[in-house]
């Protein structure tokens, strides 16, 4: 009897093991003993190209055709990455400058209105003044999308309300701005 009980308990014990939950593999954000710097995620060796790098470089060189989809994508990416500093309307009054970050220029000043779209793409790619490069966060095609949306913002802020049609004017008044 005693032996039987012990045997049953012994059979139940493996249930307490959870070796599968933590397997001997290195996930991307984890430390790893395989490499000298202790990181599982390794930067590609210098001079190597990722398979999609030529396509990304081409996307950076060639401006995509302007479509409503591109503008919408630009608006979304702008809201994520640009509004913290540049503000929703691009006037440079974002939340972060109000907390002490150097104030970025308004997109509605003459210099930036005259600047070509490539200027904005280049600034996103390489950074400018206190602004870091966003090339690690915004894909080349999205940089063009954001540049296109900045153009839309520039037009929106200098457009007289009389130039809008009736429906648009009603919506503008309803929005209270």
């Amino acid at each position: 009897m005693k032996r039987a009980i012990l045997l049953v308990l012994l059979c139940l014990l493996p249930a307490a093991c959870n070796d599968m939950g933590r397997q001997p593999r290195s996930d991307s954000d984890e430390p790893s003993k395989l490499f000298a710097d202790g990181k599982a995620l390794q930067a590609p060796p210098e001079g190597t190209l990722a398979r999609d790098d030529p396509a990304r470089m081409a996307a950076l060189q060639n401006r995509p055709p302007l479509t409503p989809a591109l503008l919408q994508r630009g608006a979304e990416r702008y809201a994520i990455y640009c509004t913290p500093c540049h503000g929703l309307t691009g006037d440079g009054h974002g939340r972060i400058p109000s907390r002490g970050f150097p104030q970025p220029p308004s997109f509605h000043e003459a210099r930036l209105k005259a600047a070509p779209s490539r200027h904005f793409v280049d600034v996103i790619t390489a950074g400018y003044g206190a602004m870091y490069s966003y090339s690690d966060r915004i894909e080349p095609r999205d940089r063009w999308a954001i540049a296109a949306y900045i153009r839309a913002l520039q037009i929106s802020q200098s457009m007289p309300a009389s130039a809008l049609d009736e429906d648009e004017r009603r919506r503008l008044e309803e929005s209270g701005s």
Binding site: G100, F101, D136
Partner: peptide, 11 residues
Amino acid sequence: HVCMTCHSQIW
């Protein structure tokens, strides 16, 4: 690098 985007200037 992402943290430092702001914290190179703030705090």
